[in-house]
Structure formats: structure tokens, C-alpha cells
């Protein structure tokens, strides 16, 4: 069967991401991967919580003096909104509206880039204050946890941009529908991790 067989809205399956064996395998395999990612981030959270505000003597930085809530609030709103825009993209995929999906994924990418820019600004600001990666056990744990999340954002952005560009002229097929679906799951997972980061690292850090 031809992978690039064209469908119409009437023939497009209800769950295009899980029709083929390939799609089913991608779906299950990707959730297994997300289970593994959960453990990865949990171990980084555990390290951060154990080393928070700890380090060699004479530490001049603490979570209370370092973090600024307005910036974190804006980053949170941007990432949360980008999660909704990728839900819209999947809504259009199910309705076999290719242009709509590409457009909403494009908006997701723009929001993701804005988030990334703010995170780079934040890290740069900390390093200028003298709070760099090797400053203390606390700084290493902080940058590793939040930085690993940042790398996930970069990977997600590259992934989604490649999908948009590579499939721009192809339109929908049962070959690329699972690819779009897993990319959107990945993007939601990035938001799941961020919910814990803004709560546990930033909000609880400011509270003390």
C-alpha cells in the first residue's frame, strides 16, 4: 500500500495516529519513553531538593534572593498557552485540516522560542551575578534541572520545525500523522515538567 495515499475528510480515520501498525508502535513506544523521562526528571528534582541552598561555606546566593516571580510568571503563561495551541493543532489534524494544523504548530513554535529566549536571559542574568554552574552544589543542581528542561524545549522545537518543513508539501498521510501526534505529546510533557519546576523550584524557593 502506498504510504502517501491521499485521504479526504470523509475517509480520514478518527484516530489517524493509531491506524497502522507503525503508528500503534510509535504511540506505545513513545509513552514508554515518557515514563522513562519521568524518572529522569524525578532524579534531577530529588538532587535539586537535596542540595537546595546548600554548598560550600560563605554562600551568598539563596532561592529567596535569586528568583524573580514576574519573569517566571510570564514564562509559565507562555508555555501553558503553547500547550493549548498544540491541542488546537491536533484538533485540526483529526479534522483533516492540514493548513490549520501547520499554522497552530507554527504558533506553538513561536511561543516555544519566546520561552527559550526568556530562559536564556534568566540564566545569563544569574551567571552575571556570579551564580554560575560551578559556584556551588546548589547552583549545579539548579542549572542541571532547569537546563535539562530547557534542552527538552530545544529538542521539541527542532522536532516540530522539522515536521512542519518536511511535510509542508506532502499533506496528511497515515505515515506522518503518528509523527505529528508524538511530537505534540512530547510538547505537552515539557509543560508537565515545567508545572513542577515553577512550583517546586521557583514558588517554593521564594517562599523558603
Amino acid at each position: 500500500m502506498d504510504l502517501n495515499k491521499k485521504y479526504t475528510p470523509q475517509t480520514w480515520p478518527d484516530h489517524p495516529e493509531q491506524v497502522t501498525m507503525e503508528g500503534k508502535n510509535k504511540f506505545l513506544g513513545f509513552w514508554l519513553f515518557l515514563g522513562g523521562e519521568t524518572v529522569l526528571f524525578a532524579s534531577l528534582f530529588a538532587t535539586y531538593l537535596a542540595l537546595k541552598n546548600k554548598g560550600p561555606s560563605g554562600m551568598e546566593f539563596s532561592t529567596q534572593t535569586l528568583f524573580e516571580l514576574p519573569l517566571v510568571f510570564i514564562m509559565t503563561m507562555i508555555l501553558l498557552t503553547s500547550s493549548l495551541t498544540s491541542v488546537y493543532a491536533m484538533y485540526h489534524m483529526k479534522n483533516h485540516n492540514f493548513k490549520g494544523m501547520q499554522l497552530w504548530l507554527g504558533i506553538t513554535v513561536v511561543l516555544g522560542l519566546a520561552f527559550l529566549a526568556l530562559e536564556i536571559y534568566e540564566f545569563n542574568h544569574y551567571v552575571h551575578l556570579g551564580f554560575n554552574y560551578s559556584q556551588s552544589a546548589f547552583s549545579s543542581a539548579f542549572f542541571t534541572l532547569v537546563g535539562t528542561h530547557g534542552i527538552h524545549v530545544v529538542v521539541g522545537l527542532v522536532w516540530i520545525i522539522l515536521l512542519i518543513v518536511r511535510n509542508a508539501k506532502r499533506g496528511f498521510s497515515l505515515y506522518n500523522a503518528p509523527k505529528y501526534y508524538t511530537a505534540s505529546l512530547y510538547w505537552h510533557f515539557i509543560d508537565v515538567v515545567w508545572v513542577f519546576i515553577f512550583t517546586v523550584v521557583y514558588l517554593m524557593g521564594v517562599v523558603g
Partner: peptide, 27 residues
Amino acid sequence: NHNVPMYFLFVGAFFGFITILTFLTII
């Protein structure tokens, strides 16, 4: 059709929780 994904994710979350508990208590 999401039973297996749930199983994967909750097992991951369970081990994650144990890890956090261990690090907080042991250290």
C-alpha cells in the same frame, strides 16, 4: 486505549516519587 500508557507513566511516577523521598530523607 490508554491503559498501557497509563501503566508506563504511573510506574515512572512511582519510582520518581521513591527517588525524591529517598534523597530527602537519607541526606
